[in-house]
Nucleic acid binder design. Structure first.
Lengths: 257, 257
DNA sequence: GCCCCAAACAACGA
DNA sequence: CTCGTTGTTTGGGG
């Protein structure tokens, strides 16, 4: 379950290693989720070269020199591999052979999803979201729980169940708060926390696993972290189901309801 | 808020007084809920005679000699009137003049709804429902609350918030029970209670207000009755919101969850 | 932990 | 107390 910061690091490393490589063949698992036919995918990518690899929300966007783009969502257990012996990778869902090496997307659960040339999303990415947008959506969904709000990918792209807990702790907002009841100045804090928690995490991951294209790092998380029992400020970390998800929080966070 | 038993008595009395009368004119409030245009309604009913008046679910179905049918739903506050001076009736929504007298449907809230020649419903009426149907629908909605189930007009037509409490008390089923957890033999009791509570109520209303076409009688209800504090068997009546509705029940009722 | 869908549930208006 | 619509929540399956 890579989230935004993991994917951001993966994207830089994938781009560094893959940019300029040409796709010689495309193999995909018949059962993969795909918005076109496997045949269309093959003909769209074969002989094109990789121009860029970027993160978009929780997806990886591969841009090709022929203007094709392929979005890959890893879901819970998907992984990227770059290998000269693709046959050794288990649970291959998609394999692009790129000359001497191959890019493989694997997933033991088979839930990886691919989109060829998707229409571009109107939902802002969490790293780019602006205060005006956030306030407008909050006013449209006054009664929605703040945790459900932040992880709703139709409102904001990229935040998942781990980082939402980090962001809410950083902003000192209790996860069961209702967005319409959060005062304006606390929404400001929230906006800042979204950006800072995510960019700090990206920096941390780069420091700890500079080359990663699949392994995620989570042990530095401050509250959403089974290895910790207290927050950095010494308050006991509690867990509870919120918005149907396991949630880590402390009493430092103010409940707005 | 007439429910099935009230409407059943109204229908007999309306039929006795209106059968054979011919519609000379049709006037309806512009804002009325109607599945056709007011013009179509007029042309469909003018010069036709009333052949029958029957209850169907919570609606009154007027059958005409030209095969037209008009379904009237009284919603919360609608009423029928038969009068030789229709002008005296307030909040008229629909007025059929029938020679010497007129049938008026009034509603101070304007929520009455009319359907001309509706397609016939595949949902059984509560007085006709069979055990096989009930068991099938229960198995399809195992987790639905029994109160929500019984008043859901897409599953069973005719039961409203007052009589559902009577039926559940009679069957000794707690209103917060979940249908999938109710044992088969108790579902049998429930089926019997549906029929007996409703038909007994029809008999009682006929006894107390034999001529009624609009006044409802409720004071004989055994638990859904603000004037009573204990059930016929002496248990304190409690009230609580269940399925978003005020609910009267006692501890005699078994909770199946 | 992810997303999608369907069902259940709540809130509002008419 | 009625029904409809809309949006939200929840649970199951992939």
């Amino acid at each position: 379950m890579p989230e935004l910061p993991d994917l951001a690091v993966f994207s830089e490393n994938l781009q560094a290693r893959l940019q300029g490589k040409t796709v010689h063949s495309v193999e995909c698992q018949r059962a993969i989720r795909l918005n076109t036919s496997p045949e269309q995918l093959k003909s769209a990518l074969c002989n094109a070269s990789i121009a860029s690899v970027r993160r978009a929300g929780k997806e990886m966007a591969f841009g090709f020199t022929n203007q094709a783009t392929l979005f890959v969502h890893l879901m819970l257990k998907g992984k990227f591999h770059i290998t000269s012996v693709p046959a050794t990778v288990e649970s291959q869902m998609l394999t692009l052979s790129l000359g001497g090496e191959s890019l493989v997307v694997s997933d033991p659960e088979g839930q990886v999803s691919l989109k060829l040339n998707p229409s571009l999303s109107s939902v802002p990415d969490a790293l780019e979201v602006e205060g005006t947008y956030l306030r407008r959506k909050i006013s449209e969904r006054r009664k929605k729980g703040v945790k459900a709000f932040l992880i709703d990918q139709s409102l904001l792209r990229g935040i998942g169940n781990a980082y939402v807990d980090e962001i809410l702790w950083q902003a000192r907002i209790a996860p069961k708060s209702v967005v319409g009841k959060i005062p304006d100045h606390v929404i400001e804090d929230l906006l800042i926390s979204i950006k800072s928690v995510l960019t700090d995490a990206i920096d941390e991951i780069k420091k700890r696993k500079p080359e990663t294209i699949s392994e995620e790092v989570r042990d530095f998380l401050r509250v959403h972290n089974p290895k910790r029992s207290v927050s950095p400020t010494g308050h006991r970390i509690m867990t509870e189901q919120v918005a149907s998800r396991i949630t880590y929080f402390t009493e430092e966070q103010v409940l707005y309801v």
